[in-house]
Computed example of a mutant assay.
Amino acid sequence: MDFVIVHTIDRLARNRADDVAITKTIQGAGAYLVSTTEAISTTPSGRLLHGIMASIAEFYSQNLATEVMKGMR
């Protein structure tokens, strides 16, 4: 069994599209994605949680960029 280990899902990708592409590549290689701090799995509930967490990471990144630009103005 092969694994791709990340600390948190938001360290894997900063947008949902990249997260999906990376996850599909990992699965296509026959490996499993493991987060050291989050309970994600290949069950329907685990995939839902992964998607929600990836969406939150994307929101955080976009919101941070907005706030930085606001601060620079």
Rank of each mutant, 00 (worst) to 15 (best):
27 Q>G: 04
54 A>K: 08
57 A>Y: 12
6 V>K: 11
60 Y>V: 10
44 P>E: 07
59 F>E: 13
68 V>Y: 11
26 I>N: 00
13 A>V: 00
10 D>K: 14
65 A>M: 09
19 D>H: 13
51 G>I: 08
30 G>N: 02
61 S>I: 06
66 T>Y: 12
46 G>T: 07
56 I>L: 13
65 A>S: 12
22 I>T: 04
17 A>I: 10
68 V>F: 14
21 A>S: 06
11 R>N: 14
33 L>M: 05
45 S>F: 05
34 V>N: 03
46 G>R: 04
41 S>N: 08
31 A>S: 05
71 G>W: 13
28 G>Y: 01
37 T>W: 03
35 S>A: 10
27 Q>D: 09
63 N>R: 15
55 S>V: 06
50 H>M: 01
26 I>F: 01
42 T>Q: 03
29 A>I: 00
43 T>E: 01
59 F>Y: 15
57 A>D: 09
47 R>Q: 10
41 S>Q: 01
70 K>H: 15
19 D>R: 11
28 G>D: 02
66 T>W: 11
68 V>N: 07
42 T>V: 01
30 G>V: 02
39 A>Q: 09
33 L>E: 05
71 G>P: 12
21 A>M: 07
47 R>I: 08
14 R>Q: 11
41 S>V: 01
38 E>Q: 15
43 T>I: 00
2 D>F: 02
35 S>R: 07
20 V>R: 11
70 K>I: 14
9 I>A: 10
45 S>Q: 08
62 Q>G: 15
7 H>W: 13
53 M>C: 06
2 D>G: 01
42 T>C: 01
27 Q>Y: 04
55 S>H: 13
31 A>G: 05
47 R>A: 02
56 I>K: 14
32 Y>I: 10
14 R>I: 02
38 E>I: 14
62 Q>A: 13
64 L>Q: 15
52 I>D: 01
37 T>P: 00
44 P>H: 07
12 L>G: 04
15 N>H: 11
57 A>C: 11
42 T>D: 08
15 N>C: 04
64 L>S: 14
54 A>P: 06
3 F>R: 14
55 S>N: 14
67 E>S: 14
41 S>M: 00
24 K>E: 09
18 D>P: 00
7 H>I: 11
54 A>R: 07
49 L>E: 02
30 G>T: 07
20 V>T: 04
54 A>S: 15
31 A>L: 01
57 A>W: 07
58 E>D: 09
20 V>K: 12
62 Q>P: 03
6 V>N: 10
25 T>W: 02
15 N>L: 03
33 L>Y: 01
62 Q>K: 15
1 M>E: 11
35 S>E: 03
31 A>V: 08
52 I>M: 12
13 A>Y: 03
70 K>P: 05
